[in-house]
């Protein structure tokens, strides 16, 4: 890993100032994506700005019909939070399905969302629940936030502070995992809130996480696995790699969507 200068700002404004003054800085949360990339010299940063000491980026808050989670919250803490388990159990399950326990002890929701890996789990949860992303500058809906492979609407230096989840009547996540990496080959997150259904898919889209409107329309008429039998996704929009062709992924999207509908309130993993 190339040399770097490590900073631990105690406040948001301190973090912003260090970023503005540095040559090629990066924010550091759990470090479980950024540090391996820097070690392989796929990334080089003059300065690493550790966000873990900034108070407003921690913890869970319930605000009327929303659950807010601080960006520095580790996957392990979301997976084991009694509040998350009560309000959106599928989200707790989703966090618990990420990587392994050591990865979950370090990795954070903010880091995962800011990174927008096309096979990561949180992007599907945020898009599938219609979450709001709160930064130091503005609020963005998930549909506008995830813009492509490893791409988000975050501007250079902008800090993700919290994610706010509307509390749905039903939510479920079904994940077909890569045996080696444990990332999703296909993950489908479904929610139903005031008769509106959202279906978000990770692991499969050639442009990253996406919604499937045809599945949503079918489930709004009839929230049951059989409603999806005649639905399909065009493989032309899907990626292909060693884990499966785009046709294979198209089929898995339908299967995982049905498994999610069959397991409300749960995250179910398959491999």
């Amino acid at each position: 890993m190339y040399p770097t200068k490590y900073h631990t700002p105690k406040t948001l404004s301190e973090a912003q100032k260090i970023f503005a003054a540095a040559a090629s800085p990066a924010y550091l949360s759990g470090g479980h994506t950024l540090l391996p990339a820097m070690k392989l010299r796929l990334a080089a940063h003059s300065d690493l700005i550790d966000l873990s000491a900034i108070p407003e980026m921690h913890g869970f808050t319930q605000k009327a019909d929303r659950l807010s989670i601080g960006a520095m919250t580790r996957h392990h803490d979301v997976a084991n939070s009694a509040l998350v388990a009560k309000l959106i159990p599928a989200l707790a399950g989703c966090a618990g399905s990420i990587g392994d326990r050591h990865v979950r002890h370090r990795g954070t929701i903010g880091g995962s969302v800011a990174n927008n890996d096309p096979a990561a789990d949180y992007p599907a949860a945020l898009l599938g629940l219609g979450a709001i992303i709160v930064t130091d500058k503005r609020q963005l809906v998930a549909d506008e936030f995830f813009t492509g492979l490893y791409q988000t609407a975050l501007q250079p230096g902008e800090i993700l502070l919290q994610v706010e989840f509307p509390i749905p009547q039903i939510a479920a996540y079904a994940k077909f995992r890569s045996l080696a990496s444990r990332y999703s080959v296909v993950g489908v997150f479904i929610s139903q809130n005031n008769k509106k259904v959202r279906v978000a898919v990770t692991g499969a889209g050639a442009g990253g996480v996406f919604r499937v409107q045809s599945f949503e329309a079918a489930l709004e008429k009839d929230f049951s696995p059989s409603a999806l039998v005649t639905c399909s996704v065009d493989p032309a929009y899907l990626m292909a790699d060693a884990s499966g062709s785009s046709e294979y992924r198209a089929n898995l999207i339908n299967v995982m969507a049905r498994r999610a509908v069959e397991n409300p309130g749960k995250t179910s993993c398959y491999n």
Partner: peptide, 28 residues
């Protein structure tokens, strides 16, 4: 050395971490 194998697991403040994926300065 790529965060996969777990041979490097130690406890930091009572929880297990892969010490190949945490900087020494983060353990201050």
């Amino acid at each position: 050395d790529t965060s996969q194998c777990g041979c490097c697991v130690v406890h930091v403040n009572g929880t297990s971490v892969k010490s190949c994926t945490m900087l020494a300065v983060q353990a201050n």
